[in-house]
């Protein structure tokens, strides 16, 4: 029974995509009619460097089972260096959350360019598989408190 629940589990993934590369890449996957898991909810931001690491924490609190931050490949950032800053931030945040007992599968980062519709599909498949493997987030989300 428990196993059945595990496979039935459909995670909520929040994805922060940069406007110039990853959002366009996801859009390309859509216009190319590529099939990929529908667990992901996209939030478009101007740059991966705009994603405050507290967004990840707040998303996990608010019920996300996993969070993806995606930006341009190194060297391709529309703002020259936003993705480089993001890379340092999320590496540290991911390690830190792992240290607190939050599985690293829940905090992912990817480089997806505007032409990589196929890569977007692979990224989402991997993120969803990873979160499914660790199960629902049950550590510090805001619960409906009993008064």
């Amino acid at each position: 029974m428990a196993e059945a629940t595990q496979t039935d589990f459909q995670p909520n993934i929040v994805a922060f995509l940069c406007n110039w590369c990853s959002y366009a890449g996801a859009d390309l996957a859509g216009t190319s009619r590529t099939q990929y898991p529908s667990n992901v909810r996209v939030i478009r931001v101007m740059c991966s460097g705009r994603v405050n690491p507290m967004f990840v924490v707040n998303a996990l609190q608010e019920g996300a089972d996993g969070v993806l931050v995606s930006g341009c490949h190194p060297g391709d950032c529309h703002y020259m260096q936003g993705n480089y800053y993001a890379r340092r931030r999320f590496k540290l945040m991911r390690n830190f959350l792992e240290y607190l007992g939050i599985e690293p599968e829940r905090v992912r980062m990817s480089w997806v360019s505007a032409s990589e519709g196929a890569k977007w599909k692979e990224v989402i498949e991997e993120v969803v598989e990873g979160v499914k493997a660790v199960g629902p987030m049950n550590k510090f989300q805001r619960r409906q408190l009993n008064w």
Partner: peptide
Amino acid sequence: PLLSSYRPDDPEDFIL
């Protein structure tokens, strides 16, 4: 300051 600087070859093994 660490988080407002970067090196192009910072580790990125965790990136998909």
